[in-house]
Design a protein around this nucleic acid. Sequence first.
DNA 1: ATTATCTATAGATCTATAGATAATGC
DNA 2: ATTATCTATAGATCTATAGATAATGC
Lengths: 223, 223
Amino acid sequence: MPRSKFISDLHWVREGQQSRSQKTQEALLDAAEALFSDQGADATCVADVARRAGCSVGAVYHHFRDKKALLYALFDRMSEQKSATAREALDPSRWKGASVADILHAYLEFSLATARERPAFMRAGLEASRNDPALLEHLADLHRETNAGLTRLLLAREPEIGHPEPKVAIGFVLDQLAAMMKTRLDNILMPTELSAISDDQFIDETLRSACGYLQVPMPKRDD
Amino acid sequence: MPRSKFISDLHWVREGQQSRSQKTQEALLDAAEALFSDQGADATCVADVARRAGCSVGAVYHHFRDKKALLYALFDRMSEQKSATAREALDPSRWKGASVADILHAYLEFSLATARERPAFMRAGLEASRNDPALLEHLADLHRETNAGLTRLLLAREPEIGHPEPKVAIGFVLDQLAAMMKTRLDNILMPTELSAISDDQFIDETLRSACGYLQVPMPKRDD
DNA sequence: ATTATCTATAGATCTATAGATAATGC
DNA sequence: ATTATCTATAGATCTATAGATAATGC
């Protein structure tokens, strides 16, 4: 009985009958999230997840069909949260009177902040999806959903944009921003100048670059 | 007897006495490179490397202290090649009369082309370096070396640059380009709009963005 | 009575080594 | 005689299950 897109017959999660079940499941998901984020799913063994959740290996397999089902359930939980947040944040009525630059600025700040809460989770997801096209497709869907919402907001402000092809430019700039944030967050690993500067400075320069490309005015600030 | 920075007492590679040795070592490195790139080092077992190289597991351990030494030797080989190419390509005398835009354009084209030859090798390296600070440091050095060369070329053209702080801007823009290429190459995995466009279009838009940010003229082309 | 948990372990997989066999080159 | 290779396997680690034990809630 699939509860959502990540949970199929193949990757079932048991629907508990007792109240204990939910607690254990959530403890397991929390433990898995922490460990998978930190080391990747492959490098984490089921026994470690169980230990961290304070239960036994047997309990893990009582609740989740196998290790992969645990991973899927995890992404399910995260994608629910992320979708809900995005839907709310990207509601056009929230952005009356906001400029293109305002929206991009808010997007950068928000994404950096939330990504920092789950430092390496996305990377772990991409790694895991390497041998799992279905998982990859789910992650891509999630990304597309957010992108579509942002694109809608920006397209509504087309007259602001000086770039000759606003549609192309919007697609490009959103991917550019995503690429830069991904690299900055990853680059705890591979330090470049991008990680030497502060978040504020990073957002500032990134925004300056994006506004220059789109040919929209920067948000007024220091002058 | 360390032959180079990657090869220490801990990660030795045997100096062969017979001519067979070199052939086998290179076959093993080639096999490892292909498999590590494709699946990551963790997901590749030594037996697979041996099979692909057409020799036995025992032979692997005759030549390399352990699996990690094989990985180190691989990066050693790659970093030698990359350093040499970079030194040659970034020689200032080659770029007499070239504009900032010309240099960035060449850099984008060249990096994309060479990265495509070894599609996922850098990613495999970053993954492997997660639990190996020394390897990470070597990779960072390699990156810094190229970056320093490029920075030198661009700083020599400081008067061209309209951005109020050319030094900051150069550092930022180089990291931006690296981030975008990394994402584009990785995104065989996570398709965004960046991977939907052609390489030429990608280079074109990326260059347009970079020139806009730096406030340098675009290279003349279609008008 | 049913559901959840635990303990113990079978089976798979992988790294690394020991010891036997084959090739090289002085 | 020395170096390189191969075969076979010990030891470590991890997934998943079987069967015993404990907790829940009708």
